[in-house]
Design a binder for these strands. Structure first.
Lengths: 323, 323
DNA sequence: ATGAAAGCGCTAACAT
DNA sequence: ATGTTAGCGCTTTCAT
């Protein structure tokens, strides 16, 4: 290729990378030759020389899914601008696999690693004294020195409750996932505290169950059969909320007239599929992914950021809480 | 590291890669030294030497989502066994982005490329005369010489109809997505042909609409208001099917007693969320991904496979068609 | 059974 | 402004 352009390889390198002091016409001649031959620089050789790969690894500890994808897209967004690519590794909640992928990423000399998962709960650091920076996204690291970007679930729950209060509801119940699940307890506590701050009691004790529509339907039955006086329910997930709406309707209650309902996740297929469309809390997963990638870039570029960063949630009002 | 083990770099390389003729004790000593130092071979240097990267690129033309993920997991499965990793690139349906990623992958000297997308329709080849093998998964290439792995949607539709016949239904309607959508028309035609082969007419003309629950609900209304005599509906997607079930129930029809319903995709959150649980057609996306990766590996290893490979679908019976 | 040395394709420092 | 050259870290002949 350098031969075709009639220059040395060194000159060609400078021409293609916009470095050095070259005559514009030389630069152009090289670019033309590269074009003509479909030449693309060998990234491996470049990495070997420069020590940078312009690649970051992303390890999702839980199986790739609804949460990982927006995180990935957000990260790609932030990294794509810097011409960097993402290596996605699905560890499937298996520590062996996780360490295997970690080794793979290290052998590939990625410039950094983003660790994500399905739960927001803090997890053991993926490694100590690693030769590359690591940022945790959505999940956080148990080591407070590590950099983590997580949704502010307390903020999310607060927004949900305050929205229900704003549309005039006072007898608010909370239905959520398993009690041993971090998100469930965090959101439940924030719900209770927000109500308490307004001088209100929950309309019923928090109902813990599964993250499923079936549980939402069941929970509707429980609320009605215990005769709880409820005019709104904040649910820990959109699936629970959708099930609950169906359960309420099956029992002759109208949503939102009799009972207003707020979900959590703002998962399109759930909020749109629900009749009426579901008001929900959006954790802005893309934003979290973007933010994590930006912090990783900062660290790579020598401006390390430490600690747990939280990002606010957003309420998306829809018909299920319309006044 | 070689120094720690007291050998030359050449010997160390042989020890770690299980090549050459070494004394077992030497081999062990090197492995120990590597362990101790947390040494991992630099993949870039290795690639430079061997010309192989043990990496394949995966370009999804549509935004990463419900279809791409199982395909990716299947591909990872097949490739992981061979110690290969996957570079996931989301071209977001943008040809510019797609070509950009193609260049990136080529510069990274991936051993092969898998191209996927959200639609099964044939697409223009991603490039011609590429220096690496390419396999299309789920989508197919318009060039019949290219290797593509696609679901046999005709088979899927046939299984759906035959299942409905097997549970005693005769007045079968079909509700599906947009008429300009390849999958919609292919499945509709196969539905009609399967019925015809049994000497039956569709209970109503095919209803084309959107891939949404809302359309399913609406379609139920249309079927009922036109007075069509229907005892079963095969829907082009699980979302449509779920909406249709709700619409039928809202109009006082019982599923499956009055109307049996079959969906398409076997998407867990839809089939489980639906009451009654939804019988559906599974395209085995993971299998398609795995298959594509295996064919890619074969091609990389010098046994190229050409042409469009179809893979059968699977019917998963649930309560919505229970007898 | 092991070591020495060449070279993969590129970049960067230095020479011209 | 351009060419020359020495490595980056590994694998792989070829000697020993």
């Amino acid at each position: 290729m350098a031969a075709l352009a009639g220059v040395s390889t060194g000159t060609a390198s400078k021409a293609l990378n916009g470095r050095g002091a070259l005559r514009p016409e030389t630069r152009q001649r090289v670019q033309q030759a590269a074009e003509q031959l479909g030449f693309v620089a060998n990234a491996a050789a470049r990495s070997l020389q420069t020590g940078r790969t312009y690649t970051v690894g992303m390890i999702t500890t839980d199986s790739i899914g609804r949460f990982s994808i927006p995180l990935l897209i957000g990260a790609e967004d932030a990294l794509g601008a810097g011409q960097m690519s993402v290596f996605l590794c699905d560890a499937r909640d298996d520590p062996i696999r996780e360490q295997y992928y970690l080794r793979t990423l290290l052998s590939r000399k990625v410039d950094g690693i983003i660790v994500t998962g399905r739960r927001t709960q803090a997890r053991a650091p993926i490694g100590v004294g690693l030769p590359v920076p690591v940022v945790y996204a959505f999940i956080s690291s148990a080591d407070p020195r590590d950099c983590s970007v997580v949704p502010d679930e307390i903020d999310g729950a607060r927004r949900a409750v305050q929205h229900l209060l704003a549309v005039g509801r006072r007898r608010i119940a909370h239905v959520t996932g398993p009690e041993h699940h971090h998100s469930a307890t965090v959101r439940a506590r924030a719900t209770a505290e927000t109500l308490a701050a307004e001088g209100l009691q929950p309309a019923a004790p928090t109902l813990y169950g599964e993250w499923s529509e079936a549980w939402g339907r069941q929970a509707a039955g429980i609320l009605l059969s215990t005769g709880a006086d409820v005019d709104a329910v904040f649910c820990g997930s959109d699936q629970i909320a959708r099930g609950l709406v169906e359960g309420m309707q099956a029992a002759g209650r109208s949503v939102p007239a009799d009972v207003a309902v707020v979900g959590f996740d703002n998962w399109d297929v759930m909020v749109d599929g629900c009749r009426p469309a579901l008001t929900s809390i959006d954790m802005d997963l893309e934003g979290i992914g973007r933010s994590a990638a930006e912090l990783l870039l900062a660290t790579i570029n020598g401006n390390p950021v430490h600690g747990r960063q939280t990002r606010p949630c957003r309420l998306v009002p829809r018909a299920s809480t319309a006044v």
